[in-house]
C-alpha cells in the first residue's frame, strides 16, 4: 500500500499516491458540484483543497485501518464544505463517490484559481518557498540555495505555507 510507504517517509511513494488520487477526487468533486447544480469549473479548486486536507490530516489515518473510507470521508467533508461556502446546503450520499472512482479525468487548464489567489495572500517568506518548490519544482536543498535560507527554515516555511493555504481555502467567501 502506497499510503503505508508514504507515511513511513517515502516522499516518492507519497507523490505517486497523491497523483493517483487526483483523477478520482476530480471526478468526485465534479459530481458533487453537478449534484448541487453548480458550475463544474470550480472542481479543481475543490480537488486542491481535498489534497491539502489529506496531506495535513494524514496523521488521522491509522496504519491498520482501511484507506478508502478515510479518504472519502475527507473528500466528502471538503466537498460539502465547498458547496456550503458557495451558498448551498447539501447532503451527499456516499455512493456517489464510490461510483466516481471508476472514472478517470484529466486536469483542466485554469487561468485563475483559488489557490493562486490564496498564495498571493501568504506572507512573502512562505509564498516564495511554496512557489519555488511547487511551480519551479525545486527540491528543499535547491530552494534553500536560491533563497539563501537554511534547509530547516525552508521546511518550516513550506509547511506553514501549506497549512496557511488550507486555512485560506476554508475561510474564503465565508
Amino acid at each position: 500500500m502506497l499510503m503505508r510507504a508514504a507515511m513511513a517517509g517515502d516522499a516518492a511513494c507519497y507523490q505517486q499516491l497523491l497523483r493517483s488520487l487526483a483523477p478520482t477526487l476530480r471526478a468526485a468533486a465534479r459530481r458533487g458540484l453537478a449534484h448541487a447544480g453548480m458550475a463544474e469549473t470550480d472542481a479543481e479548486d475543490v480537488v486542491q483543497e481535498i489534497l491539502l486536507a489529506v496531506h495535513l490530516k494524514r496523521q488521522t489515518w491509522e496504519k491498520t485501518a482501511p484507506f478508502s473510507p478515510w479518504l472519502w470521508a475527507i473528500a466528502r467533508h471538503k466537498i460539502i464544505d465547498a458547496l456550503r461556502r458557495r451558498g448551498r446546503r447539501v447532503d451527499l450520499p456516499i455512493e456517489d463517490f464510490a461510483e466516481s472512482l471508476k472514472q478517470d479525468e484529466a486536469e483542466p487548464n485554469m487561468l485563475v484559481s483559488d489557490v493562486n489567489r490564496h498564495l498571493d495572500e501568504l506572507p512573502p517568506g512562505q509564498r516564495n518557498v511554496v512557489r519555488i518548490v511547487a511551480v519551479d519544482g525545486a527540491s528543499i536543498d535547491e530552494a534553500a540555495g536560491r533563497l539563501a535560507m537554511t534547509k530547516g527554515a525552508v521546511r518550516v516555511a513550506l509547511h506553514r505555507g501549506l497549512a496557511a493555504l488550507a486555512v485560506k481555502f476554508r475561510m474564503a467567501d465565508a
Binding site: 508514504a6 517517509g9 517515502d10 516522499a11 516518492a12 507519497y14 507523490q15 497523491l18 497523483r19 487526483a22 476530480r26 479543481e44 480537488v47 486542491q48 489534497l51 491539502l52 496531506h55 486536469e107 485554469m110 484559481s113 489557490v115 493562486n116 498564495l119 511554496v130 512557489r131 518548490v133 511547487a134 511551480v135 519544482g137 527540491s139 528543499i140 521546511r155 513550506l158 509547511h159 501549506l162
Partner: peptide
Amino acid sequence: MKTGDLIRALSADA
C-alpha cells in the same frame, strides 16, 4: 499553481 504543482509541494513536505 496547478494541481500537479501542489502535489509536488505536498510531497516535499512529507
